[in-house]
């Protein structure tokens, strides 16, 4: 495992580059949706980048990840080529799911990415099943199960906590608390808003982490992953994060003020926080950030421009 990332400029630059890739990719997706090139439900990850980037860097390539329908970033960070994701979004045969799945259903088993699930909370027992398989086959792997704080009210989540703890499955339950379950604020839907405690009745250790700080995310994740890999059983982490855009592209976002969003952008933006941290030192790493920013500015989809030209999967 690499040195503690806060001390390693190369790691921080890599976090920066990956978060920026996710941000620029999702911005491009938003534009293409507006142009009518992407259809259906489409949920952007803008604002939450630090969570998936910090956590993915704490696991190995042979570990497993499963998440909800807000899945573009998880696929990108696992290494699915941007072009394959964009081609999926535009419904092309070159898409990662051959155009059959769309925004919410992307999978890449070779990269340990198990989707991409559209029913809120359903990926939680599925993820425990992947962890069950890892343990059954006596592999020292772990599974990251991402779900939103909205899903944390689903019954099957607690059915899964019970079994995962009972059988000491190598799984980390990641609650991405972006503060709104569609349009419902946490305080309006949760009896007890400290979601990190929700596993305690099942003996599942939980921590709350600033999910806007990629270094904090990564360091907490490294510790949890090591314990789970050592056979301690499941762990839970609540990532306090925020999405800047609506729940999906069709959300007019009437349930919060522009001012609220603006304040988070100004004070907590994960990319800007990291830039300040690295560039402040005036190092070579700081210069590298500018290069990445420029490259991604020119090529915002990370090489997804050909997705309009790919043939459709539909036979004519």
């Amino acid at each position: 495992m690499a040195a503690a990332p806060a001390d390693d400029p190369a790691v921080l630059v890599d976090f920066y580059r990956t978060m920026l890739l996710v941000r620029r990719f999702e911005e491009k997706v938003g534009q293409m949706y507006g142009m009518g090139l992407i259809g259906g439900f489409c949920h952007l990850y803008i604002g939450q980048e630090a969570v998936v980037v910090g956590m993915d860097a704490a696991i190995r390539t042979d570990d497993a990840v499963i998440t909800s329908y807000r899945c573009h970033a998880h696929a990108l960070v696992r290494g699915v080529p941007p072009a394959a994701i964009m081609a999926e979004l535009t419904g092309r045969g070159a898409g990662v799911s051959k155009g059959k799945g769309g925004s919410m259903h992307m999978f890449d088993i070779e990269r340990g990415f198990y989707g991409g699930h559209g029913i809120v909370g359903a990926q939680v027992p599925l993820g425990a099943g992947i962890a069950f398989a890892q343990k059954y086959q006596r592999r020292d792997n772990v599974t990251l199960v991402f779900f939103g704080e909205g899903a944390a009210n689903q019954g099957q989540v607690y059915e899964t906590f019970n079994m995962a703890s009972l059988w000491k499955l190598p799984v980390i339950f990641v609650i991405e608390n972006n503060q709104y379950a569609m349009g419902t604020a946490v305080r309006r839907a949760k009896a007890g808003t400290e979601l990190c405690h929700r596993g305690e009745a099942f003996g599942i250790h939980g921590v709350q982490v600033d999910g806007m700080d990629v270094v904090a995310v990564h360091e907490a994740s490294r510790g949890l992953v090591a314990r789970v890999r050592d056979g301690e059983g499941p762990m839970l982490v609540e990532m306090q994060t925020y999405r800047y855009r609506g729940h999906s592209m069709s959300d007019p976002v009437k349930y919060r003020t522009r001012d609220e969003v603006q304040k988070v952008r100004e004070r907590q933006d994960p990319i800007e926080q990291l830039r300040a941290r690295v560039a402040g030192g005036g190092t070579i790493a700081g210069a590298e950030l500018k290069v990445h920013a420029l490259v991604l500015q020119k090529n915002p989809g990370g090489g997804c421009g050909s997705s309009r030209a790919e043939p459709s999967t539909m036979r004519r």
Binding site: A122, V124, P125, L126, A133, E159, N162
Partner: peptide, 12 residues
């Protein structure tokens, strides 16, 4: 829960 777990194990 357990049907979901079995289905996930099959996917894996």
């Amino acid at each position: 829960g357990f049907a979901g777990l079995a289905i996930g194990a099959a996917m894996a």
